[in-house]
Amino acid sequence: MTDVLTQPRPIRLKGRSFLALALTPELPVADWLVRLDDLAARSAGFFLRRPVVLDIDGLDIDRQELRELVEQLSSRNVRVMGIEGARTSQLGPDMPPAMTDGRPAADFEAPAESEKADKHAIDSVESAAPVPAHQQSVTAAPSLIVSRTVRSGQSIFFPEGDVTIVGSVGSGAEVVAGGSIHVYGALRGRAMAGSTGNAEARIFCRKLEAELIAIDGFYKTAEDMEPELRGKAGQIWLEGETIKAAILG
């Protein structure tokens, strides 16, 4: 017999996004596989350890054909972690799960295509490497500006960075951001900052009347919030594992 452990510490639920390679098969599948083999031959290990999502939006194949395609790919060491754009009829319990709401990201660089690549196979593998990190750090962090009131039942989801709302967040509305959340109005709904594991994220608002606030998976409900902060302009941040709040200005 195992006892159920009752622990006061809640389970932390965090969102995290990963960069996956989206493969878009074309009909006829056999020809497409030949081209894929060609690409793989030029660059051994291109698909190795890369999460791959199969984008079959608009592709006219049935469940059996899709299952065969996934098997064909796995025999080539291409492991499909999910399928995007599939109809329910095309999927089965034995197949990778359906994925939705994919956002475009920078294209993966395909291995160079020239005789040189054949001669210097090692070079071409290197050229397929992602852009060096120091180049990426120069670009500004993405942010989202919402210049309207977020109404009850609406949800703003932006795991890429900061969210600024020029307006209020209504009771029963929610804002989820990978970075900080700024509300130039009353925050009456839920605000979850640093949802992708950013403990440095903060929440700022003109009028704090939130139902729930969370940073990096740690949360506080309205009931646990200091009553003297209610209705005031405030900021909320994380210190260790405690949520701190203070009046602004």
């Binding site: 109404r151 009850s152 029963g172």
Partner: peptide, 13 residues
Amino acid sequence: VRDSDRIIGLLDS
């Protein structure tokens, strides 16, 4: 009031 807020959101979308 909260239900009306929800409806306004729907009216806008």
